[in-house]
Design a binder for these strands. Structure first.
Lengths: 136, 136
DNA sequence: TCACCTGGTTTCATATTGAAACCAGGTTTC
DNA sequence: GAAACCTGGTTTCAATATGAAACCAGGTGA
């Protein structure tokens, strides 16, 4: 039986609860429940990449934010930062085994947006038209 | 065969690409790739709820942010706002069929944080210790 | 030498957030 | 019947986060 969770949610078996603001799990959610982090995780899903390659692939991400996101993901053990002892040095980022356990969910979320755009845009038009109508 | 996607990512079959900053799909990701939106979607997964009930269940969310998130989700067609013609009026929020297609992915992400906390905290300790060691 | 890569950090102006106050109703308590 | 407390929000304002750009040390190639 799949455990049904009805909020206010009971904690996880190990006692963690994202619904509680002070819970460590919530703090992790603060970092992974973020568009940039999700895009980075998805970008690393198939191959490791260098800092500037990631930056070029993810349109609109700034160096500062990418740097912060990568540091956070590294600290949480999701991403591995490797400095290659070449000349000149190259820095690559890759997923850890732990990070790989998250990418499926991350990719699903990202992918969902792309595959449901028709319905979303339809809803947006209805909403905007209805709003314009009521304000007249 | 699962289509492997190697970034810089080719657009979706319908032409949408979250990796492109100006793509409508990216703008949707801006809204759903957000911890508050994910928590709200998860909260509504099992039953509809009133504004203040959602607010109480999601620790730390402000009225302002909840109001904004719900408006965005409603405009994108994920959440339905219903004003019940009772006295006094009650306002409930529930998932639309479109919203239900997203909740599995949202729940997976949220749930992941809770169920992997031991490994995450272990990684954090390693990272922090290593950082403290190098700065000495 | 000049220009341009690498992987970042710093600066600063602007946009977002969060806490709190406020609001118009309605209800319950005493 | 008035004080206090629900409802579902909006407004205000200070603090925080973000983004664009400059800057940096080091290396490469022309």
């Amino acid at each position: 039986m799949v455990t049904p969770r009805k909020p206010p949610l009971t904690p996880d078996a190990s006692g963690f609860n994202v619904y509680a603001r002070e819970c460590p799990a919530r703090m992790v959610l603060d970092r992974i429940g973020d568009k940039w982090a999700l895009l980075v995780l998805d970008r690393l899903r198939h191959d490791a990449a260098r800092f500037n390659a990631i930056r070029r692939d993810i349109g609109g991400i700034s160096q500062k934010v990418l740097s912060q996101v990568l540091k956070n993901l590294e600290r949480d053990g999701l991403v591995l930062r490797t400095v290659h002892a070449t000349v000149p040095v190259a820095v690559t980022y890759s997923l850890t085994p732990l990070g790989e356990t998250l990418t499926q969910a991350a990719a699903s979320l990202i992918h969902w947006a792309e595959s449901h755009m028709a319905q979303i845009q339809h809803a947006q038009r209805l909403y905007d038209d209805r709003l314009a109508a009521t304000s007249l």
